[in-house]
């Protein structure tokens, strides 16, 4: 089975993150950049499938030069190689443009399966799997908490607010996963050493047959017009107990639907 895993480098969600004042884009220069957490679950799922069914796992990243660090980190977990889409025209590309570029890159790899995280912690759009499936003509099995493969048949438990749905499709398909699907492995020291020697194929937009005016600020269908800081947390409700404190607390909890 040939599997492509999408890996995105994002600012560490545990640290302070900002949007840039000039173009409203995510400030990646000042942040500690890491692999999008959900992508580690996608990598783990791909590696487990490879262990069970054989085949090849390729990491695909679109991002600036420094995304190389995240590619090497991803490869240290075990994938065979990576494709890095790197082009000066890419900054500012929105979801639609990104899906155009990634679909073109996936097209050159002809995988049976594309696995990605259900969302990235920077923009949390949850749309990439659907967009890619549409562009590639693949089935979209999104929000998986379990994935079973039997031959070319895929069965996914799709997590919902209330429980889960069972959906099936034949390959080729795009599967997006939540962090309930597995427990990602740590890299091994040998894996880190081996990752330095694994092939990383750098592709430009020209290599993928995508023109520069279809991406970047100019080629995007959506634009962020402005942004503002999240308002500071307001002071909570203060209950002064003059004999009725308990009732006041229950009233509050009840009004907020805690009880």
């Amino acid at each position: 089975m040939k599997i492509v895993v999408l890996v995105k480098q994002v600012p560490d969600s545990g640290a302070e993150r900002n949007l840039r004042a000039d173009d409203n884009s995510v400030d990646r220069a000042s942040a500690n950049n890491v692999i999008n957490e959900m992508d580690e679950y996608a990598i783990e799922e791909a590696l487990r499938l490879q262990e069970a069914h054989g085949g090849e796992v390729t990491v695909l990243t679109m991002g600036p030069d420094r995304a190389t660090e995240s590619i090497r980190k991803a490869l240290s977990m075990g994938p065979d190689g990576a494709v890095h889409v790197l082009d000066d025209a890419l900054p500012g590309t929105d979801y639609l443009g990104t899906s155009r570029v990634l679909a073109a890159a996936i097209g050159t790899l002809s995988p049976d399966l594309v696995i990605c995280g259900a969302e990235a912690t920077d923009a949390r759009g949850q749309v990439m799997a659907h967009m890619l499936a549409e562009r590639l003509g693949f089935a979209a099995l999104t929000g998986a908490r379990k994935l079973t493969v039997e031959g070319a048949q895929l069965t996914v438990e799709r997590q919902t607010e209330e429980g889960y749905e069972v959906v099936t499709a034949a390959t080729p398909a795009v599967v997006s996963v939540w962090d309930t699907i597995n427990e990602p492995r740590y890299p091994s020291f040998k894996g880190i050493m081996a990752a330095k020697k694994k092939p990383v194929d750098t592709k430009s937009l020209a290599d993928l047959g995508v023109s520069a005016d279809q991406v970047g600020w100019g080629g995007s269908a959506t634009t962020v017009l402005s942004h503002s800081k999240r308002p500071a947390r307001s002071a909570g409700v203060k209950v002064t107990d003059s004999g009725e404190g308990g009732v006041a607390l229950v009233d509050y909890l009840s009004s907020e639907k805690f009880v």
Binding site: Y186, P187, S188, F189, K190
Partner: peptide, 20 residues
């Protein structure tokens, strides 16, 4: 075991036998 799988239980030993 988690440490072992990351290679931390054979650090000073020869790579010929699987050490680091």
């Amino acid at each position: 075991r988690t440490l072992g799988r990351s290679g931390l239980l054979g650090l000073p030993y020869s790579a010929e036998y699987g050490g680091a």
